[in-house]
């Protein structure tokens, strides 16, 4: 047998191996950060070079870094926001169906399908979006524009074909639905059945039971899953690159083409032909994306941690009430 596993339970060698793995991971992370900062620094520090590079990157229309970065950050956030608004109701609804309504084989099958959706590579979603969704959705967008054009989001001239933020948002939404749905489903499944039965016994309808018991119990997990989905939407490149007709601007007209661009898609579009300074500039935009993702993840962890704490707290309280109830039969 391998001598490594014959040693005592606290085998120092095993400990060293796992510690090594852990340190390697940290080192990779540090290497990425150092790479980002090192490559971005010269561009960010020398204003002149940046101006010249920006001018060549944008054919002279932009000369300052803020002017270049601002719309990209805005576009990235807008795309993710649209995706979240579309994805949340579908994802939470799916999670509720799987956890509260479906049973047996139906539940297993639905769960498997959702897990499968999460495994589809994003380039496939991108291809589907550009070859199927974009040509097929034109009628729906015109409908939105005709009847809801008074909402700024849907105003303007509808782009044909729909290489728009709206189309990109729909594809991003489809990509993050499985993430939100699976995590929410697992949280909803963990709601104690006594609590649900108690609510039903008190005369609540299923709908009221879900509102009063299931949703509050799963709230923090749902929030965390949404933030994880947001993290994926922020960094998603291929689907946006393939669908969106890009431009640098602050428009919220989702149905018009050539209004926004996201950071990730911009890097992918510009990198192949960029020279050294151009690459530095693109990496600088990457740093900004990194910071945004980092903040989102940090918030997600905070939310999860707080949720766990309050759940424990609630559970402890419930336990205490139950005990005091038992002790006091009157």
């Amino acid at each position: 047998m391998n001598p490594m596993f014959q040693a005592s339970p606290a085998s120092p060698r095993f400990k060293r191996v796992v510690e090594g793995a852990c340190i390697a991971v940290l080192a990779f992370f540090a290497a990425v950060v150092v790479f980002l900062v090192l490559r971005a620094a010269p561009v960010l520090s020398s204003g002149k070079a940046t101006e010249k590079e920006l001018s060549t990157l944008t054919s002279g229309s932009v000369t300052s870094l803020a002017e270049y970065l601002g719309p990209l950050v805005f576009g990235t956030l807008l795309a993710s926001f649209v995706a979240l608004v579309i994805a949340i109701p579908f994802a939470v609804g799916t999670a509720l169906v799987i956890s509260q309504f479906a049973h047996g084989k139906v539940r297993t099958a639905l769960s498997a399908v959702i897990d499968l959706l999460a495994a589809i590579p994003s380039v496939i979603y991108g291809l589907w979006g550009v070859l199927v969704l974009v040509p097929a959705s034109g009628g729906f967008w015109s409908f939105l524009n005709r009847y809801f054009g008074w909402i700024p989001l849907f105003s303007g001239t509808v782009a044909v074909p729909a290489r728009t933020m709206a189309s990109a948002g729909v594809v991003l939404a489809i990509m993050i639905i499985p993430i939100i749905a699976t995590i929410s489903r697992d949280a909803f499944l963990q709601v104690p059945s006594q609590d649900k039965e108690a609510a039903l016994a008190l005369g609540a309808t299923r709908w009221e039971m879900i509102l009063a018991v299931v949703m509050p119990a799963g709230r923090s997990a749902v929030m965390a899953s949404i933030l994880l989905g947001l993290g994926r939407a922020l960094g998603e490149t291929m689907a946006v690159l393939m669908i969106l007709s890009p431009a640098s601007g602050y428009s919220v007209h989702l149905l018009e083409a050539t209004q926004n661009q996201t950071i990730a898609a911009n890097i992918a579009a510009q990198f192949p032909e960029a020279d050294e300074n151009g690459v530095g500039l693109l990496i600088a935009t990457g740093v900004v994306l990194f910071i945004i993702s980092f903040v989102v993840n940090a918030i997600a962890q905070k939310v999860v941690a707080r949720g766990e704490k309050s759940e424990k707290h609630e559970a402890a309280q419930r336990h205490a009430t139950a005990e005091s109830g038992e002790g006091n039969p009157a």
Binding site: G60, R163, A257
Partner: peptide
């Protein structure tokens, strides 16, 4: 230049 200069129509 190698980048398209305006926002008329759409990019692909």
């Amino acid at each position: 230049g190698e980048n398209w200069p305006n926002k008329i129509g759409m990019g692909a």
